[in-house]
């Protein structure tokens, strides 16, 4: 469904005379199969949201290829891209800022239909009611404004609007991070249900390993702009190889955890994780590791394996 091949994204900052570059995404490759959910986990600033935006080409990659259903998205012109857009949707972190505060819920959900055109008002109305039901809202919510709804309800609206475009592929960027646990549980269950009903392919971005375990078929672990480990979710949780993945897992479960004190990425040469890695050796500081295949669908970026 989606194949990402060696994408990079550098952001520039600084003045006219001296430009600084920040590499947000560094040579990242992965693929997502049709009907699969890939979880992308990492801490804030690791570049996971940037990957999500790149995949949908909401921002332009510095280099690399993104193939969506056989089409190289990075090469498309604006017009062609616009045609493809409805098939790829994104759900953002903060539902309150994803919705127009002056637009009624029903109008927000109807907007994708209106943009497509060719549907009568009655049909649009019916579709909207169907979607409202699908995401577990009640019909009276249609006439409300976002401020009259809770965060969890608004995130359902955002989901309904994403589904209105009839997408094949959805990027969900921390869709539940601002929500309460019981609301989060409702929404994640809903997303799983919708995913299997509509045969969606999902890229699920989060920093919560427990959530990713529940939501994804495969997991990619990101750190410092790089993917450090990819594998089948259940397998990876039991057989993590990369020290960073292990550290994350240990923090999630153990009472007594190792708390790393140094989280500075080293920019030039060497492994991105080496300054924080308890097993770092000389080679880790000098030579960049390459992705190694160590089993069925399990890849690790580490000198030690």
């Amino acid at each position: 469904m989606l194949e990402v091949h060696r994408i990079n994204k550098r952001f520039s900052s600084g003045g006219i005379f001296k430009k600084n570059y920040i590499t947000a995404v560094d040579d990242v490759s992965f693929s997502i199969n049709r009907g699969e959910t890939l979880g992308l986990v990492g801490e804030s600033g690791c570049g996971k949201t940037t990957v999500g935006k790149l995949v949908l080409r909401l921002i332009e990659p510095t280099s690399g290829k993104i193939i969506f259903d056989g089409v190289d998205v990075t090469k498309l012109r604006k017009k062609e891209l616009r045609k493809l857009r409805p098939r790829m949707q994104m759900i953002f972190q903060d539902p309150d800022s994803s919705l127009d505060p002056r637009m009624k819920i029903g109008d927000s959900i109807a907007e994708p239909f209106r943009l497509r055109g060719g549907l009568s008002r009655r049909v649009v109305g019916e579709r909207v009611s169907d979607l409202v039901e699908t995401v577990g809202l009640s019909p009276e919510h249609v006439n409300r404004y976002p401020y009259q709804m809770s965060g969890g309800q608004n995130q359902r609206v955002v989901l309904a609007r994403a589904l209105a475009a009839n997408p094949d592929f959805v990027v969900a960027d921390e869709p539940t991070s601002g929500l309460d646990v019981s609301v989060q549980a409702q929404l994640l269950n809903l997303m799983n249900g919708v995913k299997s009903d509509l045969a969606l392919t999902i890229m699920f971005i989060t920093h919560d390993l427990e959530v990713v375990r529940y939501m994804s078929d495969r997991v990619a672990v990101m750190y410092g702009g790089k993917i450090l480990e990819v594998g089948d979710t259940e397998y990876l949780f039991d057989h993590a190889e990369h020290p960073y993945t292990r550290e994350l897992l240990a923090q999630q479960s153990a009472e007594d955890y190792y708390v790393p004190e140094d989280d500075v990425n080293n920019g030039d040469g060497g492994c991105v994780f080496c300054s924080r890695c308890p097993f770092a050796e000389e080679v880790c500081k000098n030579k960049e590791p390459v992705m190694v295949n160590i089993g069925r669908d399990h890849q690790v970026l580490c000198h030690r394996v």
Binding site: V181, S182, V183, Q184, A185, L188, N189, E210, Y214
Partner: peptide, 19 residues
């Protein structure tokens, strides 16, 4: 009980309804 059960680590079973 419902609050604990809705945690991802304890099964992610939501409490029905809203506050």
């Amino acid at each position: 009980k419902g609050f604990l059960d809705s945690l991802p680590s304890r099964g992610l079973k939501p409490i029905p309804g809203m506050g």
